[in-house]
Structure formats: C-alpha cells, structure tokens
C-alpha cells in the first residue's frame, strides 16, 4: 500500500498578469488528502490568483500544479475541473441557472453523466448542505446563507477531490455562518478555505497557510499561527477584539 498522492501539490508557482503585474513569486504548497487548510493573507496577497491556478483558469506562468497526482495542463482541464470544486465569494456569480436544481445539475451534466445519475447527485448534494427540497426554487427566492450553501452543493455534485472556498463566511449573519460551518465540517473532502476571518479558520481548519506578496510566509497548526502576533502583524492580519486562539479540543 502506498499513500495516496496529495490532494493538491503546488511547486514553485509564479505568475504575472499580461499587464506586467506579478502576483505570485514561487508558491509551494502541499495539501494531503482529507486535510483542512485555511489560506490567510491580506488583500492583494495573490490569494485569488493562486485559487484560479488550482483549476487551470489561469495558466502559463512558471511552476507546476497537480491535483491528486494529475498535473494541470490544457489537456487535463476537464478532469481537473471535476477534481477541484471552487466556490466563489458571491453566490449570485455561481448560481446562474433559473432554478437551484438545474444549477446543481450543471456540473454533472458537463461531465456527461446519465440523467438518472445527475438526478441522484443533485439530491445527494442538496441533502449534504441541508437544502433538500429547494431544487425547484429560483435562486433569488433564497436567503444569502442558503444561496452560499447551494453554491457549495453545485461543486459537491461533481464529487471533487478538493473544495476551494473563497471567503466562505463573508456577508453571512451569525446563524448563516454557523450553519455553513456545520455543513463544511461534515463534508468528507479535502478543504482549502481562503479567508480573512481568522476565528472561522480556527474553527474549521487545523492548518493555516499565510500568503503575502505572492509567497508563502507562514505555514503551521492554526492555533500556533494565530498565536504568533508578530507574524500576523507583519502581514496585515488581525484577530477580532477579545478573541484568543487556542488548540482545538
């Protein structure tokens, strides 16, 4: 028995946008299967650029990205996009079909699955995010928190190797935040969560990585990273007033 390949392997990834702005300067990141990792960093650190490399939306810089042993190349893109489920920040960007059910079915149908299999996956995915019964509703009838959970379901239906969430807790009310945390906590997949919300990172992810100015500047157990006040201060990260990190029980 050999160990499974890491869910995500990023080696020496560098990237500059066509306008010359360089966003990544050699990022290395290895995430094992089943790990929960928070990607922290100030605005403009290159977090979004990194995320867009994980499923091959951006390519062409230096370095290598591989997902569960499969390198991101032009030819592997369909399979890469099945393996990497990206949940974008604004659910209104992610949910573009007229109904919730059709939207969750969009990914599986792109995979060419049979209609029976698509229907089964839609049911399961909506169930996993606590939204069963919403399949026939138009997205604009749902609350923001419900839409964000549906956005998670749209990638779950593709049975991804790793789910990447961009600011999952933004704009959620406290109950919506807790409900989403419960959903994410119960998912049996590898998770990479891009966030500024340090308590949320502490709650959901055992490991945290800090990205700043296009390089990884910190990597370790979340409670240790969050306890390192000079490290946080050097990278414009701040704990909310009154919050003190401690090892998860």
């Amino acid at each position: 028995m050999t160990a499974p390949p890491p869910s995500l392997l990023v080696e020496d990834l560098a990237f500059a946008y066509p306008d010359g702005h360089q966003a990544l300067f050699g990022v290395d990141l290895r995430i094992e299967k089943g790990e929960r990792v928070a990607l922290l960093g100030p605005n403009g650190a290159g977090k979004t650029t990194l995320v867009l490399h994980l499923n091959g939306i951006l390519r062409g810089g230096r370095g290598r990205v591989s997902v569960a042993g499969l390198d991101v190349t032009k030819r592997s893109l369909p399979e890469i996009r099945r393996r990497v489920g990206v949940v974008f920040q604004d659910p209104d960007d992610q949910l573009f079909m007229p109904t919730v059910g059709e939207d969750v079915a969009f990914g599986p149908r792109n995979l060419g699955l049979s209609e029976d299999e698509v229907a089964a996956r839609v049911t399961t995915a909506l169930d996993q995010v606590g939204m069963s019964g919403a399949a026939d509703r138009p997205p604009h009838h749902l609350s923001f928190g419900q839409r964000r959970r549906i956005a998670v379901a749209t990638v779950l239906a593709m049975r991804p190797e790793i789910i990447v969430l961009d600011e999952p807790s933004s704009n959620l009310d406290p109950a919506g935040r807790r409900e989403l945390a419960e959903v994410l906590d119960a998912l049996p997949v590898t998770l990479l969560m891009v966030t500024h919300d340090l308590p949320y990172a502490a709650q959901l992810c055992a490991r945290s990585v800090i990205l700043d100015d296009g390089v990884v500047v910190g990597d370790g157990a979340t409670h240790e990273v969050l306890a390192d006040a000079p490290l946080l201060a050097a990278h414009r990260l701040e704990l909310p007033y009154g919050f003190s990190p401690r090892p998860a029980g």
Partner: peptide, 23 residues
C-alpha cells in the same frame, strides 16, 4: 464585471460553450 465572474464560475464547473439540457 459580474459577467466575467459568472463566466469564471461556469468554466470552473466544466462549461465548454454549450448548456447541457435536461430531460
């Protein structure tokens, strides 16, 4: 800009230019 973000989200879920129709 929203259009661009929606397009990104679609590509991320394997969009190839045609909308798969249901039954």
């Amino acid at each position: 800009e929203r259009g661009e973000r929606v397009h990104l989200a679609m590509l991320s879920r394997g969009y190839t230019g045609t909308l798969p129709a249901g039954p």
